[in-house]
Amino acid sequence: MSHETFEECTTKLKKLNDQVIVITGASSGIGLVTASMAAAKGAKVVLAARNEAALKELAEELLQAGHEAVYIRADVGMEEEVNKIAEMAIKSFGRFDTWVNNAGVTIYGNAMDVSYQDMKRLFATNFWGVVYGSRTAVQHYLERGVPGTLINIGSVFGDKGTLIQSVYASSKFAIHGWTDSLRIEMEREGAPASITLIHPGRIDTPYTEHARSYLAHQPVHKGMMYPPEAVAEAILYAASHPKRDIYVGSQAKMLQFLGANFPRLTDKLWERISPRTQYDETRKSNTPEESNLYHAGYGMHERGANLGWKRIRSMIVKAAKHPVLTRAIVAGISVWAVLKVKRNNQEIN
C-alpha cells in the first residue's frame, strides 16, 4: 500500500467521467436515477439488482444513448452474488472506482407483529448486503492501491427510530454503525478509501409499493418528500469528493438534530405525527406476494404513488456541495441580523 495519508489518498479520487461505478438496486427508484445520471455524466456503470429484465432494458437504453453499461442479476443478501458483481465490473472494465450500496427493502408493520423470518430476510438485504458490498469494495481499493469511494445509503430512520417501520429503522441504524466503524478503521490504516454515508429523508420512489406490509391500508409517503434525483446528486458528488455524511432533505437533518438533543420530546411528537403519514386510508394494502422482500419487484419506475408535497430539489444537498459558499452566506445573514437588531434598538432608544 502507498505511504500517503488518508487525506492525500481520498483527495485524488477520479473525476466522474473517468470512473467505473457499481450501483446495487439499480432497477428502480434511487438506483435507477443514479445510474442514468452517472452515465449521462460520462461514467461507466455496472448495474446490479434482482430484476434482470429491468436491468437489461436500462442497459440497452444507456448503450443506445452512447454510454457504457453492463448489468448482472444479483441478490445482495448472498455474499457469492455480491462477489459476482465485482467480477463483472473487473471483467468488463478492469476495475471499479465507486461502489454504491443502494439496494434495500422495507416492512410496514408493528414491531410485535412482524415475523422473525421477514425480519431476517430484510436484514439479509439491507444490512448484510451493505457489509458484503463494503468489504468487496474496500478490498478492491486496497489491492489496487488506488483511491476509491464507498457510498452506503442510510436513512433518516437510521438516525431516529420510528413507528410501523421498526425493522427497517433497525437495519439502517446497523448500517450507520457499520459505516462509521469501518471508516474509522480504514482511516487509521491509511486505506485508500473514501467512505460516505447518505442520509435520505422521505424520497418519492416505489419504495412503499414494494414494501412487505402488515397493514390494512397501502403504505405511502404523505407530506413533504424529495425526488430521487436529489439523492443521486448527493451520491455522485460523493463519488469524486470525499464526504463523511450528506443529508438529503431538511427533514432528515432536523429529525437527526431533534432526536439527538431532545429525544423525549421528539418521541412524543413522532408518536402523534408519524403513523398517519405512512399509509393511505383509501387504498387496500398490497399482498405479501406483491412485495419485493423475497423476490424482485417491478422495475424501471423512478417515482412512486405517494401523496403530498413533492420537492424538486434538496437545498441541504446543494449546501453540502458548496460548504465554503454556504458558510459565507450564513455568516453574512448573521451579521445582517445583528446589525438590524442594533439599529432597531438605537431607534427605540
Rank of each mutant, 00 (worst) to 15 (best):
I164C: 05
N286M: 06
P227K: 11
T106K: 00
G77L: 08
P219L: 05
V33C: 04
A137M: 06
T136D: 07
V33T: 13
I312L: 08
P275L: 05
N261L: 02
L163M: 15
T196F: 07
P323G: 04
H217L: 00
R327N: 15
E87Q: 15
I246L: 11
Y298A: 07
F93K: 10
G29D: 09
H140M: 08
R313D: 08
L269D: 02
A230I: 06
K44W: 04
F93I: 09
D245T: 05
M225W: 03
Y294T: 04
M300L: 15
L293G: 02
A305Q: 11
E290I: 07
E8S: 08
Q19M: 14
T98N: 07
G133I: 10
I30M: 15
T266M: 15
L258H: 05
V324I: 15
K340I: 01
E187R: 15
A40I: 02
V156R: 12
F96E: 10
E347R: 14
E80R: 08
S155C: 13
A89F: 07
E57H: 04
S36G: 01
V156Y: 01
L236Y: 09
H3F: 12
G297Y: 09
Q278D: 06
E302C: 09
T10L: 02
V70M: 07
G161A: 15
E143N: 15
I198L: 14
V105K: 04
K160L: 04
